[in-house]
């Protein structure tokens, strides 16, 4: 999947439209895990919903292309797009409890996901497929007749993953899949996703704010702030040679067990609200390295070196 210059506006009452997403581009190769990182309200969810074309009624995609399997997803008709969702691009959500129907057996919900998309129709084959999926995510076959509330948090997330895999999708969008879980369960789920990636050749768009998880899971990282791409590079570059001040600050704010004596830093202030964006660089009000130009001019995404992009006036100057 390759995304170029995707922009999304939200139409507001009694105000000009808010530019929630501006010219975001990235490529997701086969078998790649791309980490989408940023604080809450930085546009992660908007990007995800734009890709799936599930924006709320006041959201409009204003420009860009989303190339996937040789076609532009933004040009597809509503029916063709509905066919695309889940069959080719599936999603895993944060709170698995909310995402599962509490009054339906887990096995039946997975079966429903399969039948709904005409992946398989014959009853016997569907049952076999459900068993296969549950086995894939490490849920014992005896538990398919249970209800979601009989599952623990980790099991529910596994069930969600099984549902996402129902139609053999090529891409999985994982929205904070481990945020509410304990570290040990988180480790189990991450290990599972990693195995599935290798076995099924899945591409994963991993949305999270946990930089530790990103370091362990992802191949490339896209850092977002205020709806703009701040930095986009391989995971090693992001952690060991970050160019954008926001990326650096974010890393300094994240606790690192291997250096427990250092003082933890914070980024004062909060992300801009979409209806009150600063005129220049969106990070300028919180940036420690800010100078005059930042307040008036928005920096463009600039290639630092091959495969490493950052949008900062300081980077351009070098």
């Amino acid at each position: 999947m390759s995304v170029t210059d995707l922009s999304t506006d939200f139409l507001l009452e009694s105000a000009p439209p808010a530019h929630a997403l501006v010219n975001v581009s990235f490529t997701l190769r086969e078998g790649e895990v791309l980490g989408l990182v940023g604080e809450s309200g930085c546009g992660k969810t908007t990007l995800m919903l734009s890709l799936m074309r599930l924006l709320p009624a006041n959201g409009r995609i204003t420009s860009g292309t989303v190339n996937f399997m040789g076609q532009d997803l933004l040009d597809l008709g509503e029916n063709a797009m509905a066919d695309m969702r889940w069959k080719h691009i599936a999603m895993i959500f944060q709170g698995a409890m909310n995402a599962l129907n509490p009054v339906q057996r887990v096995g039946d919900q997975i079966a429903e996901a399969i039948v709904q998309h005409n992946y398989i129709q014959e009853k016997g084959v569907v049952d076999g497929r459900v068993a296969e999926l549950l086995d894939l995510v490490g849920i014992g076959p005896e538990r398919r007749r249970q209800y979601p509330h009989q599952y623990s948090g980790g099991m529910r997330q596994r069930a969600m993953i099984a549902m996402a895999l129902a139609c053999n999708p090529q891409i999985i969008i994982a929205d904070e899949p481990t945020t509410a879980l304990d570290v040990m369960v988180q480790a189990q789920i991450l290990e599972l996703l990693d195995t599935l990636r290798q076995r099924l050749g899945l591409s994963i768009l991993f949305v999270t704010h946990d930089l530790g998880v990103v370091a362990e899971m992802c191949d490339t990282v896209l850092v977002m702030y205020g709806g703009v791409t701040v930095e986009y590079a391989s995971v090693d570059t992001i952690y060991n040679d970050p160019q954008h001040p926001y990326t650096r600050e974010l890393l300094r704010a994240f606790p690192d067990l291997s250096r427990p004596t250092e003082k933890l830093a914070s980024i004062p202030g909060h992300p801009p609200r979409l209806n009150a964006l600063p005129p220049g660089c969106r990070f300028a009000p919180r940036c420690p390295a800010v100078f005059d130009r930042c307040h008036t001019e928005q920096p463009a995404l600039h290639q630092v070196k091959l495969g490493h992009w950052a949008s900062c006036h300081l980077v351009e100057r070098m």
Partner: peptide, 9 residues
């Protein structure tokens, strides 16, 4: 299992 924010570690 606490994730360390450094891919080299």
């Amino acid at each position: 299992v606490v994730p360390v924010p450094n891919p080299r570690q």
